[in-house]
Nucleic acid binder design. Structure first.
Lengths: 122, 122
DNA sequence: CGGGATCCAAGTGGATACTG
DNA sequence: CAGTATCCACTTGGATCCCG
C-alpha cells in the first residue's frame, strides 16, 4: 500500500494548491466549517461555539473563507446589526473532509495522549 | 442536512481533542503524512519532497508526530547517518482523511482562485 | 452587535554554524 | 546526513477602544 505517488502534487512550493491547502488545513478553519455545516450561523453564535477564538481572528478567518468562495455573508439592515454566515456549495464540498478530520481528533485523542505521555516519560 | 450537531465536540476550549486537531489540521503535518503514506522515507527525501520546508521545522513536525505515536523513527547506525520515518498504524488512520484534504485542495484550487480574484476585484 | 484600527506579547519559522 | 543551537525577522493573535 505504498506505491501510489499520485499524479497531482501539492508538495511543490510552486504549486498554487499548496496555498489553498495552507488555508484549509488550519485549526480555526476546520472548526468554523464544522459549525457552519450545521447551517447558517450568526457571527456571535459562531464566536460562542468556537469558544476561545478572538473576534479579530474569527473575522479574518471568515473573510478568507468568503474570499475563496466557501462562505457567503448575509448582512441584515437592522440595529443592532445581524450578520449570518453560510457555507456555499463549494464550502459544502469541504465540509465532509474537514468533519472527518474533527472526527479523527475525537476518536483518537485518547490514544494520542497515552502515546504522548509515554514519549515524554523517556 | 443541517441538524446533526454531533455528540462529540471539538469546539470547546476545554476539550483536549482540540489540541489534537490543532496538531493535525496544519499544512506541514498534512503534507508530511501524505508523503509518508507512500512508505518509509528518509529525512532528506522528506525535506526534498516537502519542498520549501526548513530543516528545523521538518524536525519539529516529525518530533511531534512521533510523540503522538503517528510516526516511528528508524535510526541506522551508519555514517553518514540515515534516519527513516514511517507511519504507525495510528498514523495510517489519519492518512485517508488528510489525503482527502490534499485532494480537495487540488480539485478546487481553480475555482478558489477565480473566487478570490472576483472578491479582490470589488 | 459586528467589525475596523491599533498596539503589543508571544509564537513561528528561516538562516547559519556546529556536531556525531 | 540528520540533527541541535542560536539568533533574529516576521507573523499571529489577543486586548482594547471605537464606530455604524
Amino acid at each position: 500500500m505504498s506505491q501510489t505517488m499520485p499524479d497531482w502534487n501539492v508538495l511543490m512550493a510552486t504549486c498554487p494548491s499548496r496555498k489553498s491547502l495552507a488555508r484549509i488545513a488550519n485549526k480555526w478553519t476546520a472548526m468554523a466549517v464544522s459549525v457552519l455545516g450545521n447551517g447558517r450561523t450568526r457571527f456571535g453564535d459562531l464566536k460562542a461555539q468556537l469558544d476561545g477564538i478572538s473576534g479579530k481572528v474569527l473575522t479574518e478567518t471568515l473573510r478568507d473563507l468568503e474570499r475563496d468562495g466557501l462562505v457567503t455573508r448575509h448582512v441584515y439592515a437592522e440595529v443592532p446589526p445581524r450578520v449570518e454566515y453560510e457555507l456555499t456549495e463549494l464550502g459544502f464540498t469541504l465540509y465532509e473532509p474537514l468533519l472527518a478530520l474533527c472526527r479523527w481528533a475525537e476518536e483518537h485523542i485518547a490514544e494520542v495522549l497515552v502515546n504522548r505521555e509515554a514519549y515524554d516519560a523517556r
